[in-house]
């Protein structure tokens, strides 16, 4: 088996508030292989963005990494992400304006990013900047335009070009299309897929939208209350979800032409617990309809490299 590009081992991110400690990410392990798109899906507060920040080394007070390691190309980066941040790993945020300087032209910003990471002469770098713009679907003639002259979708393309400039092997896209219209979203997701295919870049796509996961990713990790609920290929997870939470999530997602009007959507009762209120055993236990004996008291391990649910423990006792 080839060594993964990124490996996260038992990562725990802790939030310190008023002297009390809460686990925002709890004992999370996952890997990203070369050239794949891994989806991180979960509801708000599930800790999915926190995982992205941890990889980028952007965890800041009142949060801190309390245990676990992150390896990128077999080099440990959780202690010092500086050498890889922005160079080998780049990030795309929900709001394109976060990453763009409104006072400088996009060409300026592209050139700066390229030349910080790759030793190139100015004309060569300019040529490369134009090629990048073309690759993300922007007319290279607009290289001297300012960010505000672009529409939301175009800006996100510029951000992607910026993220690609240092030739990273991993891009973390944190809800890159949430602020965009459906038609633009489809274009951006398509673009990400193309990049992955042609350049062999790996992408971690963080989203709350099961539809986006279905359309875009190769593998998917489902997070609940900062813990990994289920991980597997997108096909397996969506077609045959194991964890009752994933099952509920898939069933609750409305489909086009899926149901007749009279049918109601499947609904999971209740809502995800707050950080200060996570139950002792399985975090999903109070909302689960299939709970067995161990669920209440003991946190489940990841069974079969697939799901953290006691139902998949060989010795599970029905309640």
């Amino acid at each position: 088996m080839p060594t993964p590009l990124l490996q996260i081992n038992q990562l725990t991110v802790t939030l310190k508030k008023r002297q009390a400690l809460f686990k925002a990410v709890d004992n999370l392990s996952l890997t990203v292989n070369k050239g794949e798109i891994l989806g991180l899906v979960g509801e708000s507060g599930a800790g999915k963005s926190m995982v992205g920040s941890a990889i980028m080394g952007l965890i800041d007070k009142p949060l801190f990494i309390s245990s676990g390691e992150i390896y990128f190309k077999q080099r440990r980066i959780d202690t010092n992400a500086q050498p890889v941040r922005g160079a080998e790993i780049s990030m795309i945020f929900q709001d394109p304006l976060v990453s763009l300087n409104p006072l400088r032209t996009i060409g300026d910003q592209l050139l700066e990013t390229i030349r910080t990471h790759i030793p190139l002469s100015k004309p060569k770098a300019l040529e490369r900047a134009k090629r990048l713009l073309k690759e993300v679907g922007i007319d290279p003639a607009r290289i001297n335009a300012y960010p505000h002259t672009f529409s939301g979708g175009m800006r996100q393309r510029v951000v992607i070009a910026l993220a690609l400039a240092p030739e990273p092997s991993l891009i973390i896209a944190d809800e890159p299309t949430t602020a965009l219209d459906v038609s633009v979203q489809a274009q951006i997701l398509d673009l990400l897929k193309q990049l992955c295919k042609h350049r062999g870049t790996s992408i971690i796509l963080i989203t709350h939208d099961m539809g986006v996961i279905a359309d875009t990713t190769d593998r998917v990790a489902v997070l609940y209350s900062g813990r990994l609920a289920e991980i597997g290929t997108t096909y397996d997870v969506l077609k045959n979800p194991c964890h009752p939470y994933t099952k509920g999530l898939v069933a609750a997602t409305p489909q086009i032409n899926g149901a007749s009007l009279k049918d109601k959507l499947f609904q999971i009762p209740g809502s995800m617990p707050d950080l200060n209120n996570i139950p002792a055993g399985c975090a999903f236990y109070p909302r689960c309809t299939q709970a067995v004996c161990q669920c209440e008291g003991e946190q489940p391990a990841l069974f079969d490299n697939r799901t953290a649910c006691w139902l998949f423990d060989k010795g599970a006792k029905p309640k």
Binding site: V182, S183, Q185, A186, Q187, L189, D209, M210, G211, V212, I213, A214, D215, T234, Y235, L238, K239, V250, T253, Q255, I256, N257, G258
Partner: peptide, 14 residues
């Protein structure tokens, strides 16, 4: 037609 094609949908998996 474009809206329908662009809408993310998990229907294909189910």
């Amino acid at each position: 037609k474009m809206l329908l094609a662009a809408a993310p949908d998990i229907g294909a998996y189910i």
